[in-house]
Amino acid sequence: MFLDINMPEMNGWQFLDRMQPIIKPLNFKVYLLTSSTSEQEKRKSEDYKCILQFISKPISKENILRVKEEFFTF
Rank of each mutant, 00 (worst) to 15 (best):
M1P: 08
M1N: 11
M1V: 13
F2Q: 04
L3K: 03
L3M: 07
L3V: 05
D4K: 03
D4A: 08
I5H: 06
I5E: 04
N6H: 11
M7L: 14
M7P: 14
P8I: 06
E9F: 15
E9Y: 15
E9A: 04
M10P: 12
N11Y: 04
N11M: 10
N11D: 15
G12S: 11
G12Q: 04
G12W: 03
W13V: 11
W13Q: 06
W13G: 05
Q14L: 13
Q14H: 10
F15Q: 09
F15Y: 11
L16C: 07
L16N: 07
L16T: 07
L16A: 07
D17M: 09
D17L: 09
D17V: 04
D17P: 09
P21T: 05
P21D: 09
I22K: 11
I22S: 13
I22Y: 08
I22W: 04
I22C: 11
I23N: 05
I23F: 00
I23V: 15
K24V: 05
P25S: 00
P25C: 02
L26R: 15
L26V: 03
N27Y: 14
N27S: 04
N27I: 07
N27W: 13
N27K: 14
F28Q: 09
F28K: 10
V30P: 05
V30I: 15
Y31W: 15
Y31M: 03
L32M: 11
L32H: 03
L33E: 00
L33Y: 00
L33S: 10
L33T: 11
T34N: 04
T34Q: 09
S35V: 03
S35D: 12
S35I: 03
S36Q: 06
S36W: 04
S36F: 07
S36N: 06
S36E: 03
S38E: 06
E39N: 13
E39P: 12
E39T: 12
E39I: 14
E39M: 15
Q40T: 02
Q40F: 14
E41H: 13
K42R: 13
R43M: 14
R43L: 13
R43G: 03
K44M: 08
K44I: 05
K44W: 07
S45D: 08
S45Y: 01
S45R: 01
S45V: 08
E46R: 12
E46K: 14
D47I: 01
D47N: 09
Y48W: 02
Y48G: 12
K49F: 11
C50D: 14
I51A: 09
I51V: 02
L52M: 02
L52D: 12
L52W: 00
L52G: 14
Q53Y: 00
Q53W: 00
Q53R: 02
F54L: 08
I55G: 00
I55D: 08
I55L: 12
I55T: 02
I55P: 00
S56L: 02
S56Q: 05
K57H: 05
K57L: 01
P58L: 05
I59S: 10
S60I: 06
S60K: 15
S60P: 02
S60Y: 03
K61V: 08
E62Y: 01
N63H: 02
N63R: 04
N63I: 08
I64A: 01
L65F: 01
L65T: 11
V67W: 03
V67C: 10
V67M: 13
K68P: 01
K68M: 07
K68N: 10
E69L: 15
E69S: 13
E70S: 08
F71H: 12
F72G: 06
T73M: 10
T73I: 15
F74Y: 08
